[in-house]
């Protein structure tokens, strides 16, 4: 057992034992019997340390969680976080480290933990973009597709999909991104599909995307969140998340952020078979007004 583990185990044992300093009054001075919960938690904690030392991290995690469930203690949740980190369960580790700091606000190692939290929160995740099997009429033809993630162009037509081992060998693409929710658009000369996928810190997520066999139009519009809506006419339904046919030339897109009007976006739609792609997002806090918008526009060229 390392010095830290020993210290934690001792601290836990004392804390869980429920002992109190003798008081100065004249009542009986018996030591409190460790209650059944403290005893059970202590046993689970010791077994967890043993499993951890033996390299059985899954068992160690379960036992630490058992100890914590019986009697919550900062040392236990610290060890839970530590095991989760080593099991690459980064999102869980983040929560456990935060719980440790919440339980022990004056922790000596607060700065160290905050550094770990900072590093963990920056761990990129992996989105595995996959589509339906060839038997599905809505399967995406990757070779003809532009793939955009939150408005950023990630793949151009001609990119060769790779088997995604983690997802049954389905063919697709793996893309590293910071943790968060992402809008993925696939645009081919003849169709458009989109979906929203979420990936946790250091995690993997399958992002299954399909598209109807045919969706016409030279304009594709999408947004990072439902609160942002784009319209052509204030009295008509939003066009966010769609591809639509409009005459080539300049158009004005009306944007709303919840119930707030935002500045309009000017778009120039190309003649021929090219597509103008517009993506609206915001990283601003939830102020009671139209937040600052980032508008990304891409000209997707399909004309030979």
């Amino acid at each position: 057992m390392s010095a830290r583990e020993l210290a934690l185990a001792l601290a836990l044992a004392c804390a869980l034992a429920g002992t109190h300093p003798a008081s100065a009054d004249d009542t009986a001075k018996r030591k409190a019997t460790p209650d059944k919960f403290a005893k059970a938690a202590g046993e689970a904690f010791r077994d967890a340390v043993a499993a951890d030392k033996a390299g059985d991290l899954r068992t160690a995690l379960g036992l630490y969680q058992k100890a914590y469930g019986i009697s919550p203690h900062p040392s236990t949740v610290y060890n839970i976080a530590d095991v989760q980190r080593r099991l690459l369960l980064y999102a869980d580790a983040l929560k456990s480290y935060e719980t440790y700091l919440a339980l022990l606000p004056s922790a000596d190692d607060r700065k160290d933990i905050e550094a770990i939290l900072d590093a963990l929160s920056k761990m990129p995740g992996t989105l595995h973009l996959v589509t339906a099997g060839a038997s599905d009429p809505n399967a995406v033809d990757w070779k003809a597709a532009y793939v955009l993630v939150d408005g950023e162009l990630k793949l151009r037509p001609g990119s060769a999909p790779q088997p995604q081992k983690e997802y049954g060998g389905q063919s697709g693409f793996a893309i590293q991104v910071p943790a968060g929710a992402y809008v993925v658009d696939v645009v081919t000369p003849i169709t458009h599909g989109h979906t929203t996928c979420k990936v946790e810190v250091g995690g993997r997520a399958a992002c299954r995307i399909t598209a109807k066999p045919r969706v016409d139009g030279r304009l594709v519009v999408n947004a990072s969140e439902r609160d942002l809506s784009v319209r052509l006419d204030p009295k008509r339904s939003p066009i966010t998340g769609s591809r639509l046919e409009l005459p080539a030339g300049r158009h004005k897109l009306l944007v709303r952020d919840r119930s707030y009007e935002c500045p309009a976006i000017a778009v120039d739609l190309p003649p021929g078979g090219d597509v103008q792609y517009v993506f609206v997002s915001t990283s601003e806090l939830e102020f009671d007004r139209c937040r600052s918008l980032d508008v990304k526009q891409q000209r997707l060229r399909f004309t030979p």
Partner: peptide, 24 residues
């Protein structure tokens, strides 16, 4: 092309327009 559209923050008493301040 990336165009940043700032929500207009016109400040009364003829002060100039400003972009939103960074989050405190």
């Amino acid at each position: 092309m990336v165009a940043a559209i700032a929500a207009i923050a016109a400040v009364a008493e003829a002060a100039p327009s400003t972009a939103p301040a960074p989050a405190p």
